[in-house]
């Protein structure tokens, strides 16, 4: 279990983290989500013992980061943003170097490297110089490095930035695979990423936690925000207007004519497609298009982070 207690971090006069409180249970995949400069990296760097907090602290399994730095570092595997590796080393040599510093017994190193190279898919680049690797492979080597000692907690800072869509999917699958047994904390500024991989999403903005919950819970925050689009033919604006004006459970709607069609956008509290369809069926209108758009996390994210900015 990880407890982040009233964590603050200042860089000079800039307050990067303004009092984050968070409890993370073991065995979860947590996504720290926020725009660039929200304080995600700073929080992760304090957790991994790279930075010292200005005030507040983080407790990892009853150990305080400030006092038991080395003990905690043993429990945490960390992949910093953009995977800074030693570019003049071979992948194999680099991983052995990390294994030695992580105190893996000599006789187990070869086996561990085999396991990791399979898990991270770096089998065919082991003999290459890190210099010559593509961004995606560097990221995987970084991931292998972070998992070297089979740590209980894996911290990944923006693990998919700069990767192509295929690589992103691969890294996500690896994260999910690891997340079955370990606690994984990763930061990202891409929402769909957190939505696809996380058990729990924590949205951070301006150094504060602004939302926290499972992807489903966060979506519920925005319940009552159902958006329905429909296109009808063979109708006229006035009757359409009258039709929706008196319709129950509709918050608002807009009608846009487009040659002989009408595009209608409806915002409502719940999914009212059934009743709308039954009503339209009674008329002479031809229904061309009829779809539901549940508000995605994208909107929640944008709304929460914008609200904050307006307050400041």
């Amino acid at each position: 279990m990880i407890e982040i207690k009233d964590l603050k971090k200042n860089y000079g006069t800039t307050e990067a983290v303004k009092g984050i409180n968070l409890t993370i249970n073991s065995g979860q995949i947590i996504g720290l989500l926020g725009p660039n400069g929200a304080g995600k990296s700073s929080t992760l760097r304090i957790l991994t013992g790279y930075l010292k907090p200005t005030s507040g602290t983080i407790i990892v399994q009853d150990l305080d980061v400030q006092e038991n730095e080395l003990e905690i570092k043993k429990k945490i595997g960390y992949l910093p943003e953009s995977a800074p590796l030693y570019s003049d080393m071979l992948v194999f040599d680099y991983l052995i170097y990390i294994a030695e510093l992580r105190e893996i017994p000599k006789e187990n190193i070869t086996n561990r490297l085999k396991e990791l190279s399979l898990l991270c898919g770096i089998n065919n680049v082991m003999h290459k110089s890190i210099n010559s690797l593509s961004k995606g492979y560097k990221q995987r080597v970084g991931l292998a490095q972070a998992m070297m000692s089979d740590p209980e907690i894996l911290v990944l800072d923006e693990p998919t930035t700069g990767l192509d869509p295929n690589q992103i999917v691969e890294i996500r699958n690896i994260i999910k695979e690891i997340g079955k047994k370990k606690t994984v904390i990763f930061s990202t500024h891409i929402l769909s990423e957190a939505e696809a991989t996380c058990d729990r999403i924590v949205i951070i903005n301006n150094g504060n936690v602004v939302a926290d919950g499972t992807p489903e819970e966060l979506k519920k925050v925005m319940a009552g925000d159902v958006k329905i689009r429909l296109t009808v033919k063979n109708a006229d604006e006035e009757t359409l207007d009258g039709f929706f004006k008196n319709f129950p459970n509709i918050d608002s709607y807009t009608i846009e004519p487009e040659s002989d069609l009408f595009n209608v956008t409806i915002y409502s509290v719940e999914d009212v497609r059934e009743t709308i369809y039954l009503e339209i069926k009674k008329r002479e209108w031809i229904l061309i298009n009829f779809s539901l758009e549940v508000k995605s996390l994208e909107n929640i994210f944008r709304k929460l982070t914008k609200e904050q900015d307006n307050e400041n």
Binding site: P80, P84, L101
Partner: peptide, 14 residues
């Protein structure tokens, strides 16, 4: 400069 110190500094070594 390259940021590799962030990796070295978070290993369990003093």
């Amino acid at each position: 400069k390259t940021g590799s110190y962030e990796m070295l500094g978070t290993l369990p070594i003093t």
